[in-house]
Structures are given as C-alpha cells and as structure tokens.
Design a protein around this nucleic acid. Structure first.
Lengths: 231, 231
DNA sequence: TCCATTTAATGATCTATATCATTGTTTCTT
DNA sequence: AAGAAACAATGATATAGATCATTAAATGGA
C-alpha cells in the first residue's frame, strides 16, 4: 500500500497534491488505542492534529464534581481537536477518550501548518470543517437550552443512525456500542432518565436492541420528535 | 480618514499588506442598524462576512415554539457568522439581531475568499478565530449540561464584565444594556428565574444597578461561583 | 461456562426551575 | 412631564428530571 494511504481517507486533504499528501503521510504517526484510554486530556498542550482511523473516540468535558458531557462521538475519518487551536499550539479544551479498540493517526501541527501555508485550498477546507463543527456545537448548545430530555435523546439517535447506521432488514443498527451512561453524557441527563426514555421508545416500537446493541426501528418518527435546525 | 479605517479595528486583518487592506476596505459596506433589527435570519444565504463596528449585536437561535437562546453577544470589532460557512456560501445557522443603534460592516465572501487565498497568514488567523469560537461554544454547551442556573448567570456576568466592563470607582459597569429576558436567553432560563437570581446577587452585594444598568461589585466572588474551564 | 463486574430497569421521593399570576417600577414616546 | 408600554419583583403552584434504592440482566475474563 502507498505510504499516503493513512491520510487518504480524510476528505480534508483531497485537494492536496500527491507530494503534499506524501509529505503528510511521511509524518503521520499511528497509535493503537484501547478502551477507556485517554488520547489526550483537557489542558494538555495541543501539539498534534489527530484523526480516527479505526474505532470510536469521544470528546469529553468534565466538571469539578466529576460529572461529564460528551461533546461528540468520532467515527473513522473524523479529525479531532483541530478545535483545540492545534495550529496556534494552545492547550486541549477537552479530553479525547477511546470507546473501544482502534487506531488514531496524528500529525504534528508544524507539518500541518506548513502544508496549509502552501495550500490555500486546504486552509479553506479546514475553515469549512471548523464552521461545520461550530454549527454543530451551537446546535448542541441550543438543544441543551431549549429541548426536552426526550427530544435530545431522539436527536442523538437520529444523528448516530445517520453517521454510523448500518441498514439491516429489521432496522438501522447503530455500530457504536453505547451504554445508557454514554447516551446520558451526550444528552446532559442521568443514566436513569435515559434508561426510562429508552424503555418508552422500545415500548413504542421506535427502537429495539438488547444491551449496547441499538436498533432503530422507526427513524421518521424519531426525526419528527427531534426538532429541526431550521423550523 | 484613510479608506481602510473600517477594517483596521479587526485584529484578524492586521497581518495583511496595505494593498490587501485597502482592497477589503474598498468593498466594505457600512450598514446602520436599529434596535431589534435583524441583520440576517436563520436560513438566509450567507453571502457576506459581517463585523460589528459600533453597538451590540446578538446571535440568536429560536425554537419552533418561540423560545430563544442567545449564543453570543457581539461587541465592536467582533466578526460574526464566519461560522455560517460564509466562505462556502451556505446558509446562516442563526439570526443576528441589533440590540440597539449601531453600525455593521459587511464584506462579500468572494472578496474575502480572494484575500484568504493570497494570504495564508490571514487564513490561519481565521482558523484560530474559529477555534476560539468553537471552544467558547463547547464551553457553553458544557455549562448548559452541567452547571446550575446560578452558576450560569455568574459565568455570563463575569464574561460580560471582562468583555465590556468599564471600571468605575464603585465597581465594574457592564456597558451592554440588558433586560432580564436577555440574560435569561443567554443562560437558557426563564426571566423569572433570572430575576430571582439577580435579586439574590443584589442582596449578597455581588452586583448593583437599577434597570438595565448592571454594576459588578464583587467580581472575584462571581468568578468563584462560575466553574472554571479547566478544574 | 461460570462467576464477578458492569449495566439496565424501574419504583419512590425530592428539588430546581418552569409556569401562572399580580403589583410595582422603569423606560420610552410625544 | 404625562401616559403608555415594557420590564422587574415576587408569591403560589406545578413538573421534569435528579437522586436514592433495589433487583434483574448482560457482559467479559479466567
């Protein structure tokens, strides 16, 4: 396989020349990750651009009392903590934690900075990527402020189905294995409330699944429950 | 006054050459704004980069039922809705509404795109700016998910004091005139809850002020109440 | 495959904040 | 400066979701 294969999965770099892609690939470092492992912690200096090659990673913030919010679940191909002002060399605003086994690829910020300086198009891609993430984050903040627990859980399930759903004969299987606590952390709820809402969804035939294997039975109904970005 | 004076206040463009700054200034359009006026609405096509020259503008999202969240209050010099994927020419993810009289300057996205393509440093500045905004937005989401009403109000007051506070003999005056509803929209609360919290803060001598004129009396105490980004 | 550990389900109760309602105060308009 | 309109203060009540507690089920390691 060509040495550039690691980064070829990242749409962000599709605009680059073969030589720049090889330059990035040459400096790309692969890191195998284990369940629960922190790839970095809040406050650590952000020296690297990371992206997920295999598995799932969650971006987490914690409160002094030990509660946490999960800001995003990353899938293979996702860049993460670009938002950490990695280019400016600041510190990570949150933790990145492996949700299972997988592989993360990292590239030093100086290498990235170099490539960006030579490729205005790559810079514009990153700006667009950040715009998208900012938009998502603001939608998230809006959901916390205005939507009810049930609506937030519905939104999360719809989003997961769209991003990691595998279409099967009996429904859409969510490939990320999530505990109720994981979902609760995404929705800003307790695991008990999340559990009760999921039980209701199961009773209403919106979802099915035992344990961490979730199956979406009625996506349209969940989409109706989840308020849309633009009314 | 030189034609470039409009954009000179924007740190983002400090890296540009005199000719690029003049290029931007030539295409900058000034718009006087009135209280309550929408500069753009959610869903409108994002054809322009905007920044505040004078006055205050709030970025707002609304729910179908009519409730709203204020994502950010912008001060003179702030760029806004760069996050709207203005470069990509997408649509605005939220509304921008004038909080009083003022002046907004707008530059067409094509002019900006052109300048960015020629100035990698400007692109990196915009990336850093977006990173900062993303960070803020994620902190905001975290606050909604994990912090209590009182802590959120305290955070908002601290932030306003830092960004728009005028030091006076008896305290720090917040220059933005805000109703309790405005604060409630920022904190994701009702105006009644906000009112009660502010009454408590007044009783405890943390703040003072009649009507929309807020005065911070005890900033350190408010900072203690507002949980910090990194514990 | 069994046992330990983690996770889920669900009831009972509590509480922060929303909602509804009223009166008083400030701010704007002319 | 007066009147209208917007805003603030605050009580009473309702409720979504948290917290505490228990039992059952799923998962993972030896």
């Amino acid at each position: 396989m060509a040495p550039s294969s690691n980064i070829d999965s990242l749409a962000l770099f599709a605009c680059l020349s073969e030589s720049d892609r090889q330059e990035l690939a040459k400096h790309a470092i692969e890191i195998p990750i284990q369940k629960g492992q922190f790839i970095f912690r809040e406050g650590d200096p952000a020296e690297w651009f990371h992206f997920v090659k295999q598995g799932n990673v969650k971006c987490v913030k914690t409160s002094p009392e030990g509660r946490e919010v999960t800001l995003k679940i990353l899938m293979p191909g996702d860049l993460f903590c670009c938002e950490a002002s990695a280019l400016a060399g600041e510190s990570h605003p949150g933790c990145a934690q492996a949700m299972g086994e997988g592989i993360v690829v990292k590239i030093h910020r100086k290498v990235m900075l170099d490539v960006i300086q030579r490729n205005p198009e790559a810079a514009v891609n990153i700006i667009n990527y950040l715009s998208l993430r900012l938009r998502e984050s603001q939608d998230n903040a809006k959901a916390f402020a205005l939507h009810r627990a049930e609506q937030r859980i519905a939104s999360i399930l719809v989003n997961l189905a769209q991003r990691s759903g595998i279409h099967e004969t009996n429904g859409i299987r969510i490939s990320v294995r999530l505990t109720h606590q994981d979902l609760a952390d995404m929705a800003g709820l307790t695991k008990e409330t999340t559990s009760r809402i999921l039980s209701r969804f199961k009773k209403d035939q919106l979802i099915a699944g035992h344990g961490k294997q979730l199956l979406i039975l009625n996506l349209p109904r969940l989409q109706e429950m989840a308020p849309h970005a633009i009314p």
